[in-house]
């Protein structure tokens, strides 16, 4: 009889516990997708934030800014990372589908860095020379003060925001057909580190095994490295904002996460990774 009572009590406790678990709030999942340039930064943000907020799961994937924006439009991601502003045609799609123009949050600044092989004697280039190199008009290093060797071009895929930004703001024409497209800035850096006569571009946070090239606005100007100071002063000529996009104004855990990213703690990680804070 006693055993029967115990069993009943245990069963009762089990049911109460099960009901309790059922009503416990599940961890909130936030999906982040987009820019490959921003993927290291976004992963770092997520990793640090999740340590102090165990009720939130943040899933970060890359794929390129264009891919991220498409995912935002078709509802496959909560936050889109983009290294370029949204196009008006993309905003139109948000209007049509969600009756919204989307929310743009600049979350970091970046100086697009020119990567050269460490053995390359060239140390600075003008924006005009870069345009010539990446459009295929300048094909030999000797034309820009280097050795008599063909220039090997490495760039990003067309779904990349960096590809679009560099094309619109530097190349201002079609990329040379010989430009080898690679998935991610890390791949560009890796290729240039192995190719004596290679040149590539990408986010400032990627630099291992290659040397950064100073860039000047025009032939007579002073060449600068992309640093927090030169970017803040507007001296480095190839700078851009890095953005987060949402369909609507963030609420709940998503808002808390974005507020944290824009806080001094979140912005410190921007500097740690190699980008530049917005504030």
């Amino acid at each position: 009889m006693k055993n029967f009572k115990k069993a009943k009590l245990s069963l009762g406790l089990l049911i109460v516990a099960m009901i309790g678990f059922a009503f416990m709030p599940a961890p909130t999942k936030i999906t982040v997708k987009g820019s490959d340039t921003m993927v290291i930064l976004a992963q770092k943000w997520a990793e640090v934030y999740m340590k102090s907020h165990q009720d939130v799961i943040i899933q970060v994937t890359g794929g390129g800014s264009g891919t991220g924006i498409s995912a935002l439009i078709n509802g496959a991601t909560d936050i889109c990372n983009s290294s370029r502003p949204m196009k008006s045609s993309e905003i139109d799609k948000l209007k049509e589908r969600y009756a919204s123009m989307g929310v743009e949050i600049p979350c970091a600044k970046d100086g697009i860095t020119i990567f050269l092989n460490e053995s390359n004697p060239v140390s600075e280039l003008s924006v005009k020379q870069l345009a010539g190199i990446f459009s295929g008009k300048i094909r030999n290093w000797k034309e820009v003060g280097g050795p008599d060797q063909d220039i090997k071009l490495y760039g990003r895929e067309n779904s990349s925001g960096t590809y679009v930004f560099f094309k619109d703001n530097v190349v201002k024409a079609d990329y040379a057909a010989s430009c080898q497209t690679l998935p991610g800035t890390a791949a560009v850096v890796n290729a240039v580190s192995k190719d004596k006569f290679g040149i590539g571009y990408g986010g400032a946070a990627y630099a291992a095994g290659v040397k950064h090239c100073k860039v000047k606005k025009d032939d007579k100007g002073v060449a600068y490295f992309a640093t927090a100071e030169t970017i803040a002063k507007g001296q480095y000529p190839i700078t851009r904002y890095l953005y987060m996009y949402l369909r609507n104004r963030p609420t709940g855990q998503t808002k808390a996460y974005i507020d944290w990213i824009l806080s001094p703690e979140g912005q410190k990680l921007v500097t740690d990774i190699g980008y530049f804070p917005v504030k």
Partner: peptide, 10 residues
């Protein structure tokens, strides 16, 4: 007019 009021409103 697009206005964010508890989600998209136009």
């Amino acid at each position: 007019l697009y206005f964010d009021f508890l989600g998209g409103l136009a």
